[in-house]
């Protein structure tokens, strides 16, 4: 595990990955808090763990057959009411493909 200090640049890079904006004024504080959290989490370094075999929890994900069919449109009104922008019953979003 790295012992290097987190910098404002690191926080900025993570924020970009997570698609949030951290205000310039908060970068230093976030970096300092990150350091203390990572120092604490870094205790894991002391642990010697077996190579493999313990990761899998004793649970199995399962598939089920389709069921509980409902008539088309049953949920439409309630779901469409939540859309921030819409055209009729369609969700309206910005164009994501351009020819530039």
């Amino acid at each position: 595990m790295s012992t290097a200090k987190a910098t404002s640049e690191d926080v900025k890079r993570l924020a970009a990955l997570a698609r949030v904006d951290v205000p310039e004024a908060d970068l230093e504080r976030f970096a300092a808090e990150f350091d203390s959290i990572l120092a604490y989490v870094g205790k894991l370094d002391e642990l010697t763990l077996p190579e493999a075999g313990l990761e899998v929890p004793p649970l199995h994900n399962v598939l089920r057959t389709d069921g509980g069919e409902y008539e088309s449109g049953t949920w439409t009104k309630a779901l469409v009411a939540q859309f921030p922008q819409k055209e009729g019953d369609s969700l309206s979003v910005k164009k994501i493909i351009s020819h530039d």
Binding site: S2, V20, L54, E55
Partner: peptide, 24 residues
């Protein structure tokens, strides 16, 4: 941000996978 960090390439083995193993 912390979750993004522990899952990012370069750190996922040291943090997430190690923690998952410790969980076992």
């Amino acid at each position: 941000l912390l979750g993004t960090f522990v899952l990012s390439s370069g750190y996922i083995d040291a943090y997430y996978r190690k923690a998952d193993k410790a969980r076992g």
